[in-house]
């Protein structure tokens, strides 16, 4: 075999080993979630709120479009809350017990470790978010007495596709929130620091970034015509923008004026995901090699 073939083989084997280590860490995180009753209670509360809102709206006009409107704000606020509840102590706890120092004597890199933590915790968050939204969708679907055409008037109309897109964007938003929660956990030295950092990050996610954008517009730093693009810089605004532009707007009889750029929103969410994972890896432990 040539040197190039040997190198390619070694590279593939190295990548396989790295992926294996990521999943070893992810499995530990999933088992931790499954055995934590407090987190199961958080999941149950989220499920109750989402399905409860869907049940309360049953029979009201609007079907899936109405349901999406009803759930947009609660999901925007509660999904990060669930993500932070699921992930805020994970890396910090490993550090507090001295396990991070021990991990460093194994052939696992800090990026593999953080990716594993993220995959495990995000899997739990996604199960909770998507299962809740799926049940909410079923409740809304079975509760509708007749097809409603008041809000939707063309073929795209009020179909489950609207709600499926909403759930898809909620899943993306959940991934970003989980990545940021892992980063906060990695940066925190103590449980109190992790809790405080999580609350600060949640406030920033819920209102801080939007407030900063409004301030920037009112002070003239950002042109009002560019709000649609700049809204993508805030994870919550990016999620909201995607829901309005790609889930709700196509189904409305008279689509509203564009308030967000889907491309900027997608790039914004992807950017926050990379920042969360990259920041988490850098904060997990110092590079001493």
């Amino acid at each position: 075999m040539s040197d190039a073939t040997d190198a390619a083989g070694e590279s593939a084997a190295g990548l396989r080993a790295a992926v294996d280590r990521v999943f070893v860490v992810a499995e530990r995180e999933l088992r931790t979630l499954a055995r934590n009753r407090a987190l199961l209670a958080v999941a149950a509360a989220f499920f109750a709120v989402v399905v409860g809102l869907a049940g309360a709206a049953t029979g009201s006009p609007g079907g899936y479009i109405s349901l999406t409107f009803d759930l947009l704000l609660p999901v925007e606020v509660l999904v990060p809350a669930v993500a932070f509840a699921f992930a805020y102590r994970t890396v910090q706890g490993d550090g507090e017990r001295g396990e991070l120092a021990v991990f460093r004597t194994y052939p696992v890199t800090r990026l593999e470790y953080v990716l594993g933590v993220f995959v495990g915790r995000a899997s739990g968050v996604l199960v909770v978010v998507l299962a809740s939204l799926a049940v909410a969708g079923v409740v809304a679907g079975t509760g509708a007495e007749q097809p409603v055409s008041f809000f939707a008037s063309h073929s795209a109309g009020d179909t489950p596709v609207v709600f499926a897109r909403f759930a898809l964007f909620a899943a993306g938003y959940a991934l970003v929130a989980t990545a940021l929660a892992v980063a906060v956990s990695a940066a925190a030295g103590t449980t109190r620091g992790a809790l405080g950092g999580s609350v600060a990050a949640l406030v920033a996610l819920a209102v801080g970034f939007d407030l900063a954008l409004v301030t920037a517009v009112s002070s003239g730093l950002v042109d009002a015509g560019s709000i649609a693009v700049f809204a993508g810089f805030s994870p919550a605004s990016a999620f909201r923008g995607l829901v309005f532009e790609l889930a709700l707007s196509p189904a409305l009889a008279t689509p509203s004026v564009a308030t967000a750029s889907p491309v900027a929103s997608l790039v914004g969410l992807l950017g926050w995901l990379v920042i969360g994972l990259g920041g988490g890896a850098l904060a997990a432990w110092p590079d001493t090699e």
């Binding site: 088992r31 931790t32 507090e96 017990r97 001295g98 396990e99 021990v102 460093r104």
Partner: peptide
Amino acid sequence: YLPQSPGFRSG
């Protein structure tokens, strides 16, 4: 390496 007062994830 084993730190002083090592701990392990509960559960």
